[in-house]
Design a protein around this nucleic acid. Structure first.
Length: 764
DNA sequence: AGCACGCCGACT
DNA sequence: GTCGGCGTGCTC
């Protein structure tokens, strides 16, 4: 008798912890990181073995796993460890993290067959067991009967993954041809030569006969239609120019970075950083994972680095079979450098030696579903578990990375011109509000912007004008009493849309007609100035006759082929244009209203503004277009730093002091505890109670803030309260948050949001 | 008493 | 997430 009992800890794609199972009967396979079929609520479902333990107790309640499905582990042992730690760190269940990082193949098609073990006297079994003597699909039987037989040890089970299949037409060798016509004989010759075709049409074409002829032959029994497994081809990779040879300077930088476990590489132009990254990838003693927050940056990285070693792309726009194909290529060790979006964090790169995080400041690193993890933070766990080095690379360091050792390259050249909107002549229509249907030419395209736009057009160059928002949506407000229309469900202001001439809630989609008079004071209802891309496009078309004005935002994507041929033109869009390749003749980038970039009530607003402007400055790989910034805060420290051509670390460093005085990151680690309930009273009571428990664990008044009503106090019918917990380090933070981990109370939902990115008003 | 609905908790 | 148990409340 063994002294201990092996337990497989299995994560399933549900918001629950991993559960223990006994190994598959009679198997000693090392199942770690492999998908398995396990009994689940009478039926069966696919899970992932994330841990293998030895248990001294023989717990009879623990069921046996049915079958191991994968021949190669989909997660390496170190990635399994990272998965468990990430779940712990982000305060989510393992199942939730599993869904985030293995989004393909959670519910793969499985062929599951069952039969009674040989020699069982079926006469003593329920009547339904009589049909179980031969292998049959488990789906054909009553789950309750199967469950009973399983618990009695009377059931043999087999399960295997069914890969993607395709239909083909293939030769039936036993076909004994009667007398064939000439065309039929020609078709049979073609079929005997190749043995199979993808379709009847393909066969007919190859033989030079009609489709009717081959259809007849199939009917005669010469060939059959069959489903066969189809290997999904690896997705085609974009072309990559060969990486340039490393200069002595690049070698020196790579030497500096190579010795550091966690390091950073900031500043310069992308191509300078990529030259150093290329050298690091060349030198890495194992696999490399290059992660980018969005597809535009991923493509840019792949174009620069994809050719250094055997590379592959794992991006969100791939279909599941293709993702699986890339994943399997990595499992086999065919991929040395994997380029991926956040979901590739746990990909099975062999002997992972280096993880690169591109532009850690991007908010796209924050997952909006599942674990809501902030990838640059949990990448440390991933790298540590694998014994790999971690490198943060990008235009600008996050304040959190300032303390890391590494390299800051000289900033790219930026030509900056700031237009101070507060010094502009205050014409009537330049005031804070304009009418819902304003007269033409009535919004802030400053005289300076007009001038440089005309110059751009005259010199046949290209310009980009960035609007604060897409389309025409705006908040409306009463001129006299300040009344705002609010969503009846969500407690957020409704937005006005020109296209529909209606008010819309951007949270829940509720729509209504705008009032002509203010419902509280009967005053005139107005829309604020600060028009969207649609308005600006219209105005520029008038201002620049003879020049093409394109629009590019989430709603309208004009064809920009002429721009990329180098023809003159102006693109009007939101910051989404930065996801495009830079226009070749770019001479001007104008921010029509920069203030929306730094006025959100969030302590990261300044840092985001700085990042956004540096992104603009490095957009074009070689040119330094004029950056024209229209703002009411011309003296903002970010603008001063850019104007002085200061090092990219100077602005974030200047923020450290105020961050420290308000106990913000990097001085502390943050977590937000969200409490939501149908009844406001329940949410409030639970939030206070939870606050009390966190205080009891030792949180002082600096470490615990709230509870306060969430910025959006009511969302989709739920009332929400939040607490903010901040502690000097993760260990302390996790300790303080422990009461929130398993807090349960009827009708109340508690969630911990680790490393929140949008704090809004809570700390005001 | 009998049933419908909705809430809550378990799921190995 | 999904299912089932159970309590509430409505109807015959």
């Amino acid at each position: 008798m063994p002294l201990t009992h092996t337990r497989w800890r299995v994560a399933v794609a549900l918001p629950i912890p991993a559960y223990d199972f006994k190994p598959v009967h009679g198997s000693d396979a090392d199942a770690l990181g492999r998908r398995v079929l396990v009994p689940w609520q009478g039926g069966a479902r696919v899970g992932l073995v994330v841990e293998i333990n030895e248990d001294p107790r023989d717990d009879l309640n623990i069921k046996e796993a049915i079958a191991v499905l994968d021949d190669l582990p989909v997660l390496e042992p170190n990635a399994c460890r990272a998965l468990l730690e990430i779940a712990q760190e982000t305060f989510c269940n393992v199942g939730v993290a599993y869904q985030d990082f293995l989004p393909w193949g959670l519910e793969p098609p499985v062929e599951h067959t069952v039969r009674l073990v040989a020699g069982v006297n079926a006469a003593e079994l329920p009547a339904q067991a009589q049909r179980l003597h031969n292998w049959t699909s488990a789906a054909l039987h009553d789950p309750g009967v199967l469950e009973f037989l399983r618990s009695q040890g009377l059931l043999e089970e087999q399960a295997r993954l069914i890969g993607p299949t395709k239909e083909i037409i293939r030769l039936l060798p036993e076909f004994d041809p009667p007398k064939l016509t000439g065309k039929q004989a020609r078709a049979m010759d073609a079929l005997r030569e190749l043995e199979q075709f993808d379709s009847g049409v393909a066969w007919a074409e190859a033989a030079g006969v009609s489709v009717g002829t081959v259809t007849k032959l199939i009917a005669m029994g010469a060939a059959e239609r069959a489903r066969v497994p189809q290997g999904s081809p690896l997705p085609e990779l974009p072309a990559t120019p060969p990486a340039p040879r490393a200069t002595a300077e690049v070698h020196a930088h790579a030497d500096t970075l190579e010795g550091l476990a966690v390091a950073r590489l900031h500043g310069g132009k992308p191509r300078e950083r990529f030259a150093i990254l290329a050298e690091l990838i060349r030198r890495a003693p194992g696999g490399v994972l290059v992660l980018a927050p969005d597809y535009a940056r991923l493509e840019r990285a792949f174009a620069a680095l994809g050719d250094v070693r055997a590379g592959a792309l794992l991006a969100g726009d791939l279909k599941h079979p293709q993702r699986q194909a890339v994943w399997r290529a990595a499992q086999r060790g065919d991929v040395e450098v994997l380029f991926g979006t956040p979901f590739a964090l746990l990909a099975p790169v062999r002997d992972l030696a280096l993880v690169v995080i591109e532009d850690e400041l991007s908010d796209a690193w924050k997952l909006h579903s599942g674990s809501r993890a902030f990838i640059p933070e949990i990448a440390r766990t991933r790298a540590e578990a694998a014994g790999a080095r971690l490198l943060y690379a990008g235009s600008v360091p996050a304040t959190e990375s300032l303390a890391l050792p590494g390299i800051v390259l000289p900033p790219p050249r930026a030509r900056l011109h700031v237009v101070d909107l507060s010094a502009q002549p205050q014409r009537d229509e330049m005031g804070p509000m304009v009418h819902l249907n304003p007269p033409r030419n009535s919004f802030p395209i400053s005289t300076t912007l007009k001038k440089v736009l005309r110059q751009t057009a005259e010199r046949a160059r290209q310009g980009v004008v960035i609007a604060p928002r897409r389309g025409y949506s705006a908040v409306i407000r009463c001129k006299d009493c300040g009344w705002l229309p609010f969503c009846p469900n969500c407690d957020v202001p409704l937005r006005y849309h020109l296209e529909t001439r209606g008010l819309e809630c951007h949270q829940c989609g509720h729509t209504e007609r705008p009032p002509t008079r203010c419902p509280t004071c009967e005053g005139t209802v107005l829309a604020p100035r600060g028009p969207g891309s649609q308005w600006i496009q219209r105005e520029l078309q008038q201002l620049l006759p003879g020049t093409r004005v394109y629009r590019f935002d989430r709603d309208t994507k004009d064809d920009l082929a002429a721009i990329y041929r180098g023809e003159p033109g102006v693109i009007v869009g939101t910051t989404a244009v930065l996801g495009l390749p830079p226009p070749p003749n770019l001479a001007l980038i104008a921010l029509s209203f920069a203030d929306t970039m730094h006025t959100s009530p969030d302590f990261r607003a300044g840092e985001r503004y700085h990042f956004a402007l540096r992104q603009l400055a490095e957009w074009h790989p070689t040119r330094a277009p004029l950056l024209l910034i229209q703002t009411f805060q011309a003296g903002h420290a970010v603008l001063q730093g850019l104007n002085a051509g200061s090092d990219v670390a100077v602005y974030p460093t200047s923020e450290l002091e105020s961050r420290a005085s308000f106990s913000y990151p990097p001085h502390t680690k943050l977590a937000q505890v969200q409490v939501a309930a149908r009844r406001q009273h329940d949410a409030q009571m639970c939030a206070s109670k939870l606050g009390g428990l966190i205080k009891d664990r030792g949180a002082d008044s600096h470490e615990l803030l709230g509870p306060a009503p969430a910025p959006i106090a009511r969302l989709k019918g739920l009332y929400a309260y939040q607490l903010l917990v901040r502690a000097p380090d993760m260990a302390r933070l996790t300790h303080l948050l422990e009461p929130a981990r398993n807090f349960r109370e009827g009708g109340v939902r508690v969630r911990v949001e680790m490393h929140p990115r949008q704090l809004e008003e809570l700390l005001e």
